[in-house]
Amino acid sequence: MKTIAIIPARGGSKRLPGKNLMLLDRLPLIAHSILYAKANPDSIDAIFVSTDDPEIKKTALEYGAEVIDRPAHLAGDHEPTVTALKHVLESIKTRPETVILLQPTNPLRPEKLLKQAIEIYKKEKCESLFTVTRSHHKLGKINNNKFVPFNYKPGQRSQDLEPLYFENGLLYICKSDLILEDTIISENAYPLQVEHVFAQVDIDTADDFDYAEYIYQKNK
């Protein structure tokens, strides 16, 4: 195996219980990421779901993914994603060269994004790549009950802001050796810019899910 996709999906969400199995257009949330990976067989040799939840495991198997049972101590609220990825690599027989991380909370992705990302990853000889989107918000800090602009001056037009970007979570690609060193995004990671409405969907709350449904139906 040269390249695998890993989908980390624990069962203990606090803000939106059971979110990874909630139905988005009649499909469990986790199924969207599995099917996205399966639609790219030329790029992905195997698909693994890491979970501590029996129902998520059952669903992942039904949609054709392999499942790695995640131990409870790696499924806590404050456990970083990289530990789940590392556990997968330590649990499979053959170590891949490359890992693609697909988060189930980002179920909507541009169809050709993965192919584009892999082409850039190879061409630029990256050790890691992740997707970003430009923010058009006027941001600031609050110090001593006073708002201090961060990326603009009062009265400045939003279209004239200095470009700032946020990590949108659509996908990550990195060498497996990085993950074994507890890293997903390296210091010289390639930031792939994605300007698509799907980049605004990241499901953590009920409102996020409602927004995802709206965006999905509008762009179906």
Rank of each mutant, 00 (worst) to 15 (best):
Q200D: 13
S135P: 13
D69K: 05
N143Y: 09
F198Q: 03
E90G: 02
V132A: 13
Y214N: 08
G140N: 04
I215Y: 09
V67H: 09
E195D: 15
L161W: 05
T59V: 15
E111L: 12
P71S: 09
Q200R: 14
F209P: 01
M1N: 10
I4C: 06
N145W: 14
S128G: 08
A199W: 05
Y216P: 00
G76R: 08
R10I: 15
R134Q: 15
T98G: 02
I215G: 11
I185Y: 02
T81P: 03
G169Q: 02
H136C: 04
K218S: 11
S158I: 13
T94D: 14
L171G: 04
K93A: 11
D207M: 04
I34H: 00
I184H: 06
R15E: 14
I173A: 02
E111M: 11
Y36E: 02
L35E: 13
I100V: 15
R70Q: 12
V99C: 02
L171K: 09
F209R: 03
S91Q: 07
P54A: 11
P149M: 05
E111G: 01
A117Q: 05
N188E: 14
A5L: 05
D25K: 04
I68K: 02
Q159F: 14
L35Q: 14
I7Y: 01
D69G: 07
E187D: 12
L178T: 01
R26F: 11
E195L: 03
P17E: 10
G169R: 04
A9Y: 05
P96Y: 02
C126R: 00
G155C: 06
F150W: 09
E127P: 00
I184K: 08
K123T: 13
I7R: 06
T3Q: 07
V132H: 02
Y190C: 11
I173R: 02
I92T: 06
A37N: 04
